[in-house]
Design a binder for these strands. Sequence first.
RNA 1: GCGAUUGUAGCUCAGUUGGUUAGAGUACCGGAUUGUGGUUCCGUGGGUCGUCGGUUCGAAUCCGACCUGUCGCCCCA
Length: 452
Amino acid sequence: MVKPSIPKGTRDFAPTEMIRRNYIFDTIKAVFKKHAFLPIETPSMENLSTLMGKYGEEGDRLLFKVLNSGDFKQGVDFENLTSNQLTSKICEKGLRYDLTVPFARYVVQHQAEISFPFKRYQMQPVWRADRPQKGRYREFYQCDVDVIGSTSLLNEAELMQITDEIFTSFGIPVVIKINNRKILSGIAEVVGEADKLTDICTAIDKLDKIGKEKVCEELKERGLSCEAIGKMDPFFCFCGSNEEKLAQLDKVFANSEIGLKGLSEIRQMLAYAAQMDIKAEIELDITLARGLNYYTGAIFEVKAQNVSIGSISGGGRYDDLTGIFGLKNMSGVGISYGAERIYDVLNELNLFPTNIDSPIKALFINFGEKEELYALKGLQALRQAGIASELYPEKAKIGKQMTYANAKAVPFVIMAGADEIAENVYTLKDMNSGEQRKLNIAEIREIIAATL
RNA sequence: GCGAUUGUAGCUCAGUUGGUUAGAGUACCGGAUUGUGGUUCCGUGGGUCGUCGGUUCGAAUCCGACCUGUCGCCCCA
């Protein structure tokens, strides 16, 4: 006997969980569609050459690699190769790590068929060989929207609007944090460490988590001069409204062209957003850096208020993701919503709508051969009215059938034995109140339909 | 990849310095009750004590490795 189990960091989803997950996907998808985005899907596996080197050293380690089919041993020197070298000999495929890189590959490969700007959405699982923790899995879903082939900041603004609409639908209060890589470049330039941009980004990103002192320590470890770290001090304590922060940055960036460009982009985004009736708070946070190093412009991160769960969404603009696949001048901007994080937030805040938990509205009790034929007629009438309903497939004891209805949270049970058949009616039982009445099927249909 | 911690019935957990045949609650199934569930009572079944190895006369209990879950670090949705 094999003990049933699934790989580390993966999960089964029970019907009750799937109903809630589908609610999340459906809600997000509805907003994407309304904003004129089109769906695509890409394969679970990509060639490793597509994936490797796009996510930094750490990312390469977290890629799941797929062993070659056939005799992968042939002609490979197992003795004298390091694990990494061996991997490249015996694996040429890997599971996708995110949806953005496969999207870039898709765009280049299908550029002739696509009309740009291309607005696509994609909701599929991704895999990371990470160590599982709370809210972190090895297989999880991302819901991505991207606009590629347009540099307009209208796109950034639209992504903020989409974010706002999605989380308004969920009833989750959020803060949309924004920043711009050009501002971070400006900071690096101003403190005289322009070539250390990546190190500055990874360190500064942790400010709210580990505090200013530890960030300075890390910057030191990463090779920044004490002088430069001292100059960064003012950037750690920007406060006030977005306008106030921008005004302060204007002064600091007086001699940094790229820094000023970042500021003007933020201003333009905010100006567009102001026309879009966005309810969520939009906060300029210059310590927001995000690990992925392909971002070149705007950066987004969405945090739910009043919960301890980390970011539930993140994204940004990338100017040259398609370059490595041979297509230049194809700037894009996108954002990704983490389905399982949103699930946890909805759960914690008790925000799942209660009406989705009873997908089956009525159960016909099976009394036997003759009675089930009569029940089938009623069942048909309800289904034609779009009411999800079923007939218990066996003549089991009534108590057992009732327990079944209870376990599935079915709100109505319908019974018909010899008496009901003679009168051409059905007994409708409301499982919440326990009340039951003899009615004809049209009346039953109306009563159930009224609860939908 | 590094560190800490966890694992006993489908689920939640007892189990004495290592000592007979490993228990309870709950769920399931059957009955009390052949047209009534979410509240009763009785009964049946269900365990390679995570896996493999070691110490011992004897291991659920002690030791090691691995696997799984959880929590930090790294990184990230």
